[in-house]
Amino acid sequence: MILKRKVLSLVVLFISFFNASFSSFATDKEVPFQNDWLKTHYQQRLALFSTQPLEKGDVVFIGDSLTELGANWAVRFENLKIRNRGIAGDTTYGVLARLDELESSQPSAVFILIGINDIFNLFYEQQIKKLSDAAANIAKITSRLNNSLPNTKIFVLGLLPDHRDFITVMAKEVNRQILSITNPNFTFLNFHDQFAVDGIMNPELTTDGTHLNRKGYQIWKNELLPHLDGIQ
């Protein structure tokens, strides 16, 4: 009976700790253009991140579902320093709202892939009004990280193609705008063409026309490996 009470007390203590961690880590900022599903998923992912804190010197991949669905990047790259900070559905606005974690942990490198959901919102939900906002926000993200983390290497990855040609056209335009950012403080890695066939996403590399399958992630990994070699 005493043992059961002790176990129950530990369970209650764990639940209280988890709820406190969730509350302290969840952003209380109002992130623009989040539907109900994304608001919930965004907070769930932030709560998960709080249980697996970043450490100084980590290599952080931050972005949307393409990053999140890559799962355990440390296993994928056989490097325990590589961490996944992807949130499915996230936009450039969502990444802007959660940079505090990166700034407090001082990673050695940050790889950013974000913006495709800005395009989806622009076309389908029509809350975001300008395509140029995605590149403008990426400029804000990299500028802030560069100022707060001067010793961190910052990489921005170009948006990948989609099975819809009009989405791919907009993705290429965002990539062009990123490339034209004045005085960039990041390295731009554009693997768009490696995933395209006849102007859209190569169907052999995707699960649904947007997200990558195992073969697609392997190509992405191979493209990234040379840029990871010199990071300590």
Rank of each mutant, 00 (worst) to 15 (best):
residue 188 F to N: 11
residue 183 N to S: 14
residue 150 P to G: 09
residue 97 A to V: 01
residue 155 F to S: 03
residue 110 V to C: 06
residue 62 I to A: 05
residue 159 L to D: 03
residue 150 P to Y: 05
residue 174 V to M: 03
residue 59 V to D: 09
residue 167 I to F: 13
residue 107 P to N: 05
residue 178 I to E: 08
residue 60 V to K: 11
residue 77 F to L: 14
residue 48 L to N: 10
residue 67 T to E: 09
residue 126 Q to D: 02
residue 57 G to Q: 11
residue 47 A to H: 12
residue 146 N to V: 00
residue 136 A to K: 13
residue 88 A to T: 08
residue 176 R to N: 12
residue 110 V to T: 05
residue 59 V to K: 13
residue 137 N to P: 03
residue 175 N to G: 06
residue 88 A to V: 03
residue 85 R to W: 05
residue 70 G to L: 11
residue 121 N to R: 00
residue 148 S to Q: 15
residue 66 L to P: 02
residue 65 S to P: 08
residue 95 V to S: 00
residue 174 V to F: 01
residue 97 A to L: 01
residue 65 S to Q: 08
residue 106 Q to S: 12
residue 161 P to T: 12
residue 63 G to T: 10
residue 47 A to C: 08
residue 80 L to Q: 14
residue 164 R to V: 09
residue 65 S to Y: 05
residue 59 V to T: 14
residue 131 L to K: 06
residue 62 I to T: 08
residue 59 V to I: 15
residue 63 G to Y: 06
residue 102 L to G: 06
residue 144 R to Q: 09
residue 83 R to L: 10
residue 154 I to R: 03
residue 79 N to D: 15
residue 54 L to N: 14
residue 171 A to L: 02
residue 175 N to K: 07
residue 181 I to K: 07
residue 139 A to C: 04
residue 140 K to A: 05
residue 187 T to M: 02
residue 119 I to T: 04
residue 109 A to K: 09
residue 115 G to P: 01
residue 188 F to Y: 14
residue 166 F to Y: 13
residue 180 S to G: 10
residue 88 A to M: 03
residue 121 N to Y: 00
residue 160 L to M: 14
residue 135 A to C: 09
residue 85 R to K: 11
residue 112 I to Y: 01
residue 49 F to Q: 13
residue 47 A to M: 09
residue 155 F to R: 03
residue 147 N to C: 01
residue 73 W to N: 10
residue 57 G to W: 07
residue 83 R to K: 15
residue 117 N to V: 02
residue 98 R to N: 03
residue 156 V to L: 06
residue 52 Q to A: 08
residue 93 Y to A: 13
